[in-house]
């Protein structure tokens, strides 16, 4: 550990804003790199699953509203 206190870690001799903002921006990008495809996958499977159930539910097609 090269810092004596938490405030020294945050300040980093005046460079804290630069260093920490760089790390937090990177954190944000990495989280979205992982989160976005995972969410897309889940949502896609949910939508497709719903579609399949609906089309199965509407079988046989003669049961549809044909007055």
């Amino acid at each position: 550990m090269y810092f004596e206190s938490l405030s020294a870690v945050l300040q980093m001799d005046g460079h804290g804003t630069f260093v920490w903002s760089a790390y937090f921006i990177t954190l944000g990008v990495i989280v979205s790199m992982i989160y976005v495809p995972r969410r897309r996958e889940k949502r896609f499977l949910r939508q497709l699953g719903g579609q399949i159930r609906r089309s199965e539910g509407s079988n046989p097609p003669s049961a549809r509203k044909e007055v």
């Binding site: 499977l45 939508q47 497709l48 699953g49 579609q51 399949i52 159930r53």
Partner: peptide, 12 residues
């Protein structure tokens, strides 16, 4: 296989 996966996992 995708449709099976979707009914199994996305069906709830």
């Amino acid at each position: 296989w995708v449709r099976a996966l979707a009914t199994e996992r996305g069906g709830s």
